[in-house]
Amino acid sequence: MEENKIDVSVVVPLLNEEESLPELVEWINKVFVAENINGDLYLIDDGSTDNSWNIIVELKKKFEWIHGIQFQRNYGKSAALQVGFQAAEGEVVITMDADLQDSPDEIPELRRMILEENYDIVSGWKEKRYDPLSKTIPTKIYNAATTALSGIKLHDMNCGLKAYRKNVVKAIEVYGEMHRYIPVIAKWNGFAKIGEKPVQHRARKYGTTKFGLERFINGFLDLMSITFVSRFKKAPMHFFGLLGTLSFMSGTLAALWLLCEKVYLSINRLPIKREVVEQPLFYLALTAVIIGCQMFMTGFIAEMVSLNQPNRNDYGIKGRI
């Protein structure tokens, strides 16, 4: 093994966790020492308004293997994970929350499953949870919906305690609030060996949960978004073009039907009850043709935009140690 090569990088996004940080870092250090792991820790301060950053600076003085990144403002957990993934150099990258509900004692086994059982991702499964119903019920719904759409069978898709092979985190892009669906993103990027490990879940010791009701709605929107983007990001015309073609053809066929009907009645000298433009079907057909053209043009524009995508993951960083 190369000298100073990092075995495990632990990435911890945090927001106002000043009370739990010292205990968390000491616990991780204890695991590193006991298991002889050459590891490092990335603490990503997502715009905390308490004393979290100052505590990270003090902890860095004691533990050289700590890296701290401070955002200018709160960007969200996905942004923190993305920046942590970009910085991490460990052969195995492990994510966990900063609130002490995830146990660092799980690190050695998660590492072993990645290196020895050759998983691309190992997701934690909190068999016994200490979260309120407002958090556990949406999680169950998300898990069921995600399994149905992605085919990935995990009991706890949104568990913050996960392990990744290094090439996985370097290949995927996490933005918005897509952190809930990292296994889905990874699978659609070709990393299909995804495992699961029952992990200890602890009751929150300090502070309050950052879970809000808005995440219930955002979760479904994110699932729809990642499903669409993953399948049609490279070829949006396949989606918009198909819908546009179907709409255009149905409108055209309806208009032709009306015209053929009028011609037939005229040839056979039968009474024409209403002119073509007086029939509701004519306006429905016209609308379908217009929508079809718009959908097709949307697909064309999306194709052009996809060739010149701006960098989604530029975040204002206030400090770095």
Rank of each mutant, 00 (worst) to 15 (best):
N74R: 15
K166T: 11
W125G: 00
H155Y: 10
G160C: 10
K162T: 04
I217M: 00
K162R: 15
N16Y: 06
M96E: 07
A148E: 14
C260P: 00
I44Y: 02
Q72C: 08
I137Q: 13
N54A: 07
M249C: 13
I44M: 07
N143K: 08
N51D: 07
Q70D: 02
C260M: 14
L243E: 04
R274S: 07
A288W: 01
Y164R: 01
P104V: 12
R180I: 08
F191H: 09
G124P: 05
P13H: 04
N16P: 05
I321K: 10
H67T: 11
D131Q: 13
F216R: 12
D120V: 08
I194P: 04
I55D: 01
P22A: 04
V199Q: 02
Y164W: 00
L258W: 14
R312N: 12
P132T: 00
V229Y: 14
L43I: 07
K166D: 12
A88L: 05
R129N: 07
N29L: 07
M295H: 08
T287I: 07
P271Y: 09
I152M: 08
A144W: 01
I290E: 10
I55A: 10
I6N: 00
S52R: 04
R269Y: 15
F191C: 07
K135Q: 15
L43G: 05
R215W: 14
